[in-house]
Structures are given as structure tokens and as C-alpha cells.
Amino acid sequence: MAVLRELLRDGKFTFAFTVMSILIILAILSFFSPYDMSIWNVVPRDMPPSAEYILGTNSKGQDVFWEMTVAIKNSLIMAVIAAFFSRLIAIAVGLLAGFKGGMTDRTLMSINDSFIVLPVLPILILLGAILKERLNMIVLGLILAIFGWAWDARLIRSQTLSLREREFTNTAMLSGQKVYELIFKEYLPFVIPIVSATAINNMFWAVGMEVTMAILGLSNLTIPTLGTMMHWAISYQAMLLGYWWWIATPVVVSVLLFVSLYLLSVSVSQYLDPRTRIQRIGTAKVVK
């Protein structure tokens, strides 16, 4: 709580936090949706926003507001899965390569570099085309996780390499710490800031990838996501026909999501930066 209070002093964070909270509340609302999003034509088609249909309805005969809540939920779940699993791989590979060095380091880093140079989008397009209907949000999240760890593993490795050279590593060894204790107690606090800042970046990237694939028609279009909402709106010529609410809703939500994720990543990484953390730790009173 104290952490949150300190973070809220930052205007960027306050804005991003508010937007993110609203988006999460909307995602939770999806569980109370009166409509099943897999069924079409449950409401009158192409109605503009009104008291009854807050954000209007689309040409598929679905309520845009409730479709949006489900889309936010799905996109967020996918992004969190992608970020979480890619972090796990990145931490494991980065710490191991950095601490062990030598052969282990070289092997892991050559795998790592292969993933860095792999062209992600063509592979995703290929996978999307093959999997198509079987591609649900969890599978997509995991696939993105596999392609999203390599840069951060390199970052964590170089951080670990420099930590290993610092004197407190020797103090820890002389205090009788075992290797796993050393890694978890001494190094992880330095790695966590990188992990949390890049986790948000990774979510950002995952949502972007999903939107790209969906607009190209390469993901499972029966699941409402921010990407598939845009896909349907575009393929039904919503723009041309003047159904602005249908196309505007996923676009505005995506923009808000991107902006708030970006601002969160900026202010959280600033907060977690070990240098500013050390300054804060030395708490002294304000003079003047």
C-alpha cells in the first residue's frame, strides 16, 4: 500500500493506473454480460449508441459495449499469459547463463540469439494459418511467450554478469550462502525491476501482435478480442456505412491500453531502478 501511495505521487502513474483500473473493471464486467458473444443477432443490428445500447450495436447483431468488455478480458488474459511465461524463460535463461558462464553461457546464448533473429511475424502468420480455429487465447499467449523472451534474457544475463563481479557476491559466499540462495537473495532484487518493466512492454507487444494478426484475419475470429472486433468492423465496412461506434470502440480502447501500459512501464521502471531505490532507502527528513 505504501508503495502504491508513493507511486501515485507520479502524475504519469496516476493517469495510467486510473485508465488501467477502468479497463480491468470493464474486463470483470464481461462475466455479467447478458449476451453470449458466440451467438449473432441477439439485438437489433447497427443501432447507434443509446440508453439501451450504450455503445450501439454492430452488423452482427451484438451489443458493442458487452462485446468490448469480453474483448478487453480476452486481450488482457492473452497478454498476461504471454508476459508471464516469457518472463519465466527469460529469468531462468538469463540468470543461469550469467552466473554459470563458460559453456552453459555460450550454449544458452546461441539459442537466445537464434530467437532474436527469428522473423516473428511470418512465423505467427504461418502458425495462425495452420491453427486457425484451434487458436484460443491461452495458446496464442503461450506462442507469443516463446517468441518474447530472448531480448530480456540477454539483458538479465548481462546484469547478472556484472553482479557476479561485485564485491557483495564474495561476501555472500563467505557468509556461506549456497548458489541458489545467492541467486535468489542477492541477484533477484536487481533483476526484478528489469523483469517488471519489460513485462509491461511485453504485454504491450503481445496486444499489438494479436491486433495485427486479427486484422489480417489470421487468428480465431470467433473469439472477441480487440483485434477481432476491428477485423469484423473493417470487413463489414463499418467506416463506410457510418457505424463509427463499432470501429471507434476497439480503436479507442486499444489506444488507451497502449498508452497506459507505456506510462506504467515508464514510471514503474523509474520507481524500481535500484539507484533511485537506494536513494529512497536512505530516508532523511526534508529540510526547508
Partner: peptide, 12 residues
């Protein structure tokens, strides 16, 4: 003058 998350500190 150090600004730590909105809190000003003076190092004399």
C-alpha cells in the same frame, strides 16, 4: 536539489 518522487531534498 534531489527530487525523489516528488519529495525535494537539499544536500548542503
Amino acid at each position: 536539489i534531489i527530487d525523489v518522487l516528488g519529495e525535494k531534498r537539499y544536500v548542503r
